[in-house]
Amino acid sequence: MLNYIWAFMMLIAFISSIFLGKTESVSDSVISGATSAVELLFSIIGIICFWSGMMEIADKSGITKGIAKVFSPVLTKLFKNVDKNSDAMRYISLNISANLMGLGNAATPLGLNAMKELKSINHNKNEATDDMVMFVVLNTASLQLIPTTLCAYRSKYGSYAPFEIIPCVWLTSVVALTVAVIVAKLFFLKKG
């Protein structure tokens, strides 16, 4: 499916650029897009390495086990085939706590490790498991408790109450997350 989506995006770009007279900017974007991907990667190397290092310390000193314990009652319900003492579960709970604290760049390497573990649980097969779908779906929703960057932008552009949107953000996040989990679960049932 990923193959088709990717190909389809470029096909749409090609066709609409012809109809909308944007062929030149699309042609430029092939180069600028690849370049800006590398720029993005470069700009996150520092943060990703730093938090990976921090997490290694947290891991060795047992902090991560403690965090995993806190989340395990909820997470064992969402992830049916993951043992609660496994490495996969530990990475999942760490990823989620990093997301809650708004450390998106710390959450990414943890999430990638979680996916690797989930794949090995599934004997490295090439199809997504229910648990992988659930995990990625959780990461497509925002779990961040205090959207600090957003509030910083609001205050920079003259908001009188930059934080007043937070209760609405929470309510919206919870509803959106519930919908995501329900849709994911419904599909699991259909398959089973």
Partner: peptide, 15 residues
């Protein structure tokens, strides 16, 4: 993994 099943549908439903 290329076979992502219904991940995108669930994610977009949330959006």
């Amino acid at each position: 993994i290329k076979k992502i099943r219904h991940t995108l549908i669930a994610g977009l439903a949330a959006d």
